[in-house]
């Protein structure tokens, strides 16, 4: 039995949203091919630093028995259930449960997406397993071992925005300043400001005034 390692590095914009850094260890159990217990080991996910978010995923590959059981589940459109036990530096072990459709997992060639949500205090609130809805089916080659491809994402519950009063006041002040500036600049005389409107009107009046005497003269005839 050989182990597979996947190293994933995720860069975060919100590194600062975590109060304290710490380690995290996720034990992944599943309900496939377990002898007597309900859940047996599938693997572990270890994070040296939650802030860095680099995860070491260590999972036991599926064997034929696993696949057979999974296929049986898929026929019934059943669920493949995964239990995770998360332990961090400060808290006790927290249990999470998540399920994916067995059919979906098989169609995707045993690849799933694991996302863990972390509060700013470093506590984990959810570990969810999902499969992508991909149309290409990875044909399972008939080896004795089928490796599981898991992508791990650590997602942070970030701070919600607060009503942004400061920038709104700044904006109002900028607008006021702009208005004041505009008023200062524009202290030209009335004629200087509006000559472009006055001239055409004057021209129009002159033209119509020139035409008028003829019209006025008509009725006297």
């Amino acid at each position: 039995m050989h182990l597979m390692f996947i190293f994933l590095t995720i860069f975060f914009h919100y590194v600062a949203c975590l109060d304290y850094d710490g380690w995290m260890n996720i034990k992944v159990d599943h309900s496939l091919n377990c002898a007597s217990e309900k859940y047996c080991k599938r693997g572990t996910i270890t994070l040296k630093s939650i802030r860095a978010g680099t995860a070491i995923i260590d999972q036991i590959p599926f064997n034929r028995k696993h696949i057979k059981e999974l296929q049986e589940l898929a026929e019934l459109d059943g669920f493949y259930t995964i239990r995770t036990l998360v332990s961090t530096a400060e808290g006790k072990e927290i249990e999470f449960l998540s399920s994916v459709k067995a059919k979906g997992l098989l169609e995707n060639g045993l690849s799933d997406i694991i996302s863990a949500w972390v509060l700013p205090s470093g506590e984990v609130i959810a570990v969810t397993f999902q499969v992508m809805n991909s149309t290409q089916t990875n044909a399972l080659n008939l080896d004795s071992e089928y490796p599981i491809n898991s992508d791990f994402y650590l997602r942070h519950v970030d701070q919600a925005p607060v009503p942004d009063t400061a920038s709104y006041i700044q904006k109002l002040e900028r607008e006021r300043e702009a208005r004041e500036k505009g008023e200062l600049k524009d202290n030209r005389s009335f004629l200087a400001k509006y000559w472009m409107y006055i001239v055409p009107i004057a021209v129009f009046v002159m033209i119509s005034g020139a035409g008028n005497p003829e019209g006025a003269a008509q009725p006297s005839r």
Binding site: S115, L119, A126, T128, Q130, V157, D158, Q159, A160, V162
Partner: peptide, 25 residues
């Protein structure tokens, strides 16, 4: 440290996935 914290989470109730979350201190 922050007296009371409010957390709002949008959860998909069918598969149990967290869709969005935010906190208020």
């Amino acid at each position: 440290t922050h007296k009371d914290v409010v957390t709002a989470v949008a959860v998909d109730a069918a598969c149990g996935a967290v869709v969005a979350a935010s906190t208020h201190r």
